[in-house]
Design a protein around this nucleic acid. Structure first.
Length: 273
DNA sequence: CTCCAGGCTTTAG
DNA sequence: CTAAAGCATGGA
């Protein structure tokens, strides 16, 4: 089964290479993408982007295909900030993914003070060791492990996979989620959700924003990492140094679509556009 | 060698 | 309350 979409507003590369997802690999004309226990093959041919998968409903939502990006893209260009305009022009095919909340929690705990290639490696090894073995397009892959499976391992295990000092965070948070579940999180308003996420060991303000944005579709969230801090000074002429205040500045500026603007900016800065 | 990466926890003032 | 040290690892 497959899904087709206008390639102008759905570029696999723009969508996957902007740091919101860590499990994908180049494949044939595009990429294989993994989320929770699912997999798909996504590629562009001519003016159409095609998603081949076993679960059309899951990936329609995953790639946010029910949303019109023309207005979002126009909003980004309306601020007259060159970096943001360039991000919106050259990253027009970027879409915000709707990912599995638990996968986001562990992935972004690992992401702190870390670089993207290494984050991918750590997550990949955790999946290989603990995730269910499945197959797609004639190749084996591993699901992202359940919290119950993660909670059975100790800190030495995670350190042996390269997680570094985040080993204890993974142990603590997986044990808590395995015991409590995360059902309540879906029901909370965004401010309460963020506050609750901050009570998990290893989740601070930036990671909580990423989890809310990518895992709970809270598009008003604006994660502030080292790249955003850099462009805040370089491209917005900002003088604040406290990341919480920088976050408040951007949230006030961009409003309910702040998360999309954040992705355009992150992409533009990292790609040196 | 030092500096940095999608920062957080702990401790000191 | 805010400020800064400490933290694993690998690549530039």
């Amino acid at each position: 089964m497959s899904i087709e979409y206008d390639a102008r507003y759905f570029s696999p590369r723009d969508t996957l290479e902007c740091g919101q997802i860590f499990r994908f690999t180049p494949y044939k004309e595009g990429y294989k993408v993994y989320s929770a226990d699912r997999a798909c093959y996504v590629y562009t041919r001519g003016d159409r982007t095609i998603v081949e998968c076993n679960d059309v409903g899951y990936f329609y939502n995953f790639f946010d295909l029910g949303r019109d990006y023309a207005a979002i893209n126009a909003q980004a260009k309306s601020y007259g900030v060159p970096l943001l305009t360039r991000g919106a022009e050259r990253g027009a095919g970027l879409r915000l993914l709707n990912q599995n909340p638990e996968e986001m929690i562990y992935s972004f705990i690992i992401s702190q003070n870390n670089n993207i290639p290494r984050i991918k490696g750590i997550i990949g090894r955790i999946c290989e060791k603990l995730g269910e073995e499945l197959s797609f397009c004639g190749e084996k892959y591993h699901a992202f492990p359940s919290s119950a499976a993660l909670a059975q391992e100790n800190a030495e295990f995670y350190k042996s996979l390269g997680a570094g000092y985040r080993d204890g965070y993974l142990v603590s948070t997986s044990k808590r989620i395995a015991a409590e579940g995360i059902e309540e999180l879906y029901t909370l308003p965004t401010a309460e959700l963020k506050k609750k996420l901050l009570t998990y060991i290893g989740i601070g303000p930036k990671v909580a924003d990423c989890i809310s944005l990518f895992g709970f579709a809270r598009r008003e969230c604006f994660p502030v990492d080292t790249w955003i801090e850099k462009l805040y000074h370089d491209d917005f002429g900002g003088t604040l140094k406290d990341r919480n205040k920088i976050n408040a500045y951007f949230c006030g500026l961009f409003g309910e679509n702040a998360g999309y603007m954040q992705q355009y900016l992150f992409y533009a800065k990292r790609e040196n556009l």
